[in-house]
Simulated scan of single mutants.
Amino acid sequence: MKFKVFLVFIVSGLFFSCKSTYLDSKKSPVLLNISAEKDENSFVNLKNYSNDFVFDMKYATADNFLKEQVYPCSECFLRVKTVKALLAANSVFLEKGFKIKLFDCYRPKAIQEKMWKIVPDANYVANPKKGSIHNRGGAVDITLVDLNGKELDMGTTFDFFGEEASHNFSNLPENVLKNRKFLKEIMLQNNFKSFDSEWWHYNLNGSNTDEISNLKWNCN
């Protein structure tokens, strides 16, 4: 659900409006239809458009490589076009008896800066001066679970920083290679591209040209 607030000031008879820089995490009482959203670049909360995802937003907890909570709450905001592609991919997985589990979605630039202060190493955190696709609302960190919620074996944990996490690393059990291939093939078929060094990271095609955003969210 999008949250828009306009503050109006009267100065010497002139009107000025200031658009809010916050996104509302309040949930809609009913599921919304993503096709009704006409602005492809606006930010929405994925939870308002489907009940068929599992959420484990790692940076809203201390269970991450930073060992610190850096998100104020466990939300998954993305641009409308990213949500459309993600819903399409998840519908394919559901037909095959699986669903997407999300670890991370949109990340405000201010949080990117906070992460950089904790770990100022471009091997682990994107430099906020350049920004990441997460800051643009076009990236998701995901895995797959079966319909009982059990994760498929992908060989490493999320945010494992080693060569074993790479799509190009083949010295893994056959079932792990099969699971990674399954995830990658469906995501690529639905307008995403993979990130070579991280089996869990997918970017919406073309999202690298979107603006870096610092829209924050109000937690309810």
Rank of each mutant, 00 (worst) to 15 (best):
M1D: 06
M1V: 15
F3M: 10
F6H: 07
F9D: 09
I10R: 12
S12A: 08
G13N: 04
L14R: 07
S17E: 14
C18M: 15
S20C: 05
S20F: 11
T21V: 15
D24K: 03
I34K: 01
I34D: 00
S35K: 12
A36W: 15
K38L: 13
S42K: 15
S42G: 13
N45Y: 08
N45L: 06
L46R: 00
K47F: 08
N51E: 12
D52S: 10
K58Y: 15
A60Y: 03
A62R: 10
D63R: 13
L66C: 06
E68G: 09
Q69C: 12
Q69N: 05
Q69K: 13
C73R: 02
S74F: 06
L78R: 00
L78A: 01
L78F: 05
R79K: 05
R79I: 12
V80Y: 08
K81R: 07
A85V: 08
L86P: 04
L86S: 00
A88G: 06
N90R: 01
S91E: 09
V92G: 05
V92E: 08
E95W: 14
K96I: 10
F98Y: 09
K99Q: 05
K99N: 06
L102P: 08
Y106L: 12
R107N: 13
R107P: 11
A110P: 15
I111M: 10
Q112N: 11
W116Q: 03
W116P: 02
K117R: 11
V119Q: 10
P120M: 04
D121I: 03
A122C: 14
N123G: 15
N123D: 08
N123R: 14
A126L: 14
A126H: 10
G131D: 01
S132D: 04
I133A: 09
G137P: 04
G137K: 01
V140F: 02
V140I: 09
D141Q: 05
I142S: 00
I142T: 01
I142M: 03
I142N: 01
T143Q: 04
T143Y: 09
L144W: 01
D146Q: 03
G149D: 03
G155S: 05
G155F: 06
G162R: 07
G162A: 11
A165H: 04
L172W: 03
E174Q: 13
L177I: 06
K178E: 12
L183F: 02
L183H: 00
K184T: 07
K184C: 08
E185W: 13
L188D: 06
Q189K: 07
Q189C: 05
N191I: 12
S194P: 07
H201L: 08
G206L: 05
G206K: 03
N208H: 13
N208G: 07
N208M: 11
T209V: 10
D210R: 15
S213N: 07
S213T: 02
S213H: 02
K216G: 15
K216Q: 11
N218Y: 11
N218G: 10
